[in-house]
Amino acid sequence: MLTPTTTISDANNVSRNTVAEVYTQVITDLTTAEAKLPASNGIFANKYAAAALLARVYLQQGNYPAAAAAASRVISSNRFSLNPNYGDNFLSSTSLLANTQEDIFALQFSAQSGTNDLNTFYSQNRRADVEIQQQFISLFEPGDDRSTLYQKVNGVYYTNKYDVLYGNIKLIRLDEMYLIRAEANFRAGTQVGAAPLGDINTIRQRAHLPALAAVTLPAILKERRLELAFEGFRLGDVKRNMESAFDPLTNTTLPWNSPKLVFPIPLPQINANPNLVQNAGY
């Protein structure tokens, strides 16, 4: 593993570790952090931020009991609660967006700390590069409050999640913890903290949707997809769930393990470190 250095030598030409080794290191780091961080730490990461990230890692790894337990530690701390409206997480009447009761960890931005590039690319007020396909919009049930964050301008849908120019970037929220706990419990067949149905209905209720009577894995994953859309989760979920991705522009379906769903290692890095091996497909 890597150790801090102030000189560069051949020892810095590290090779790629295995997936298992990386998981081990990440989980060790986060477990240590959760143990050492205080419960309250101002704007910096606290104990629960570490637990929440650990929950995310365990879910991706497929360690469902550990994921449910970590998410439950965050929820049961009772330090966080869902905002009354989903949009409260993203919308603001000013150019600033503060932390809310739902935020477990957020990057703090202000007018003095530079602009948020997500705003540049997503916001319809700016370059509006990210155009959202109808196939995604169609997933929302009628009355889903979350769908109001997608607006059609000149025939094209854009998301309003990054309209606040100097908004904080919400990296980990409580709603994700409910979704992780629901999915992990469902997959593990457990009810750590709460039953999956209860957690999903908590999410649906906040989205102004009727409660479900029973829950299935596809229902949980769909809730997750809609709740966390355009926040950086989709690629990991596609791979984790071995889904395929459809690209309407080229009319092609990409399987979850397609090399096209893995970025290349930047060429300058391969040049700097000859021990790096390029990813397949590049």
């Binding site: 890597l2 810095n12 890095q269 040049n271 700097a272």
Partner: peptide, 8 residues
């Protein structure tokens, strides 16, 4: 000269 980003 570009360095290995893994060096920090």
């Amino acid at each position: 000269r570009q360095l290995q980003l893994t060096s920090g």
